[in-house]
Design a protein around this nucleic acid. Sequence first.
DNA 1: GTGTCTGCAAACGATTTGCAAATTA
DNA 2: TAATTTGCAAATCGTTTGCAGACAC
Lengths: 137, 137
Amino acid sequence: MQIHSEILENKGIRPSVQRVRIFKFLMKSKEHPTVEMIFNALLPEMPSLSRTTVYNTVELFKEVGLVQVLDFGRGVLRYDADLSPHSHFECERCGAVYDLDIKPQDISKKMPRGFKVHQTYFYVFGLCSHCKKNEKN
Amino acid sequence: MQIHSEILENKGIRPSVQRVRIFKFLMKSKEHPTVEMIFNALLPEMPSLSRTTVYNTVELFKEVGLVQVLDFGRGVLRYDADLSPHSHFECERCGAVYDLDIKPQDISKKMPRGFKVHQTYFYVFGLCSHCKKNEKN
DNA sequence: GTGTCTGCAAACGATTTGCAAATTA
DNA sequence: TAATTTGCAAATCGTTTGCAGACAC
């Protein structure tokens, strides 16, 4: 509990109960949760939590650089507190998201003149091992 | 007009007036248009066109493999009829989308065992040359 | 004629916004 | 107590759905 609130303070944001809980959840989660997943996971221990607060908080975390926002094109955003260079895989069948230990390629030298790169995202879609095994149809 | 309708027929779909017009527009467009952009562009010449038809049509095109769907995380989908391997850049300032002549890296050998890759997307975000030049604040 | 396609209107669902009450410095 | 944060309720907006009429083979 201590460490997490300090990280928030270092980013210049107040470590409210809600923010600390949401941040802890994001740090330990491997599934790149959506707002709905965060909300459902924390509701039992924080019955007064609102979706709005989760939305506010992940937006704030994004702005201060605590999380990465992932968009797999399903109309829901996912949040990843792992900021090291890696890529993401989404199973088209079951929707599960996996980290790939693949650094997005360095393209700074291949950019058109005058362009400035801030962020790159490498998304991979396909079937996870489990769904591939069970592939029937 | 001839060629386009033949392409649709080769994909096994009926070359209705709306489909051919939408397909032509997608083929000649360099801006990776949204449904709204397609709709607004074609409305003058097809006053009875509906957004629903545009949605139906781009979905159909996606399914038969005539277009690629791009999602830059802005809550709007964009459609690209260029299916050659390339990447995409979105300017964070003005929202313009540019093609990058960069092949997404081949990662088939780096995938975890049992995973099957269908599609990869490489997205780059930053400032385009025009917005970078005008960068004031 | 029968199945497909179009397009209106309503529904949907994730996210955003307005704002008043609660909280914290 | 003044500024920030929370959370309810309503709004927003891109997209989807239901369905009736229009169209094409």
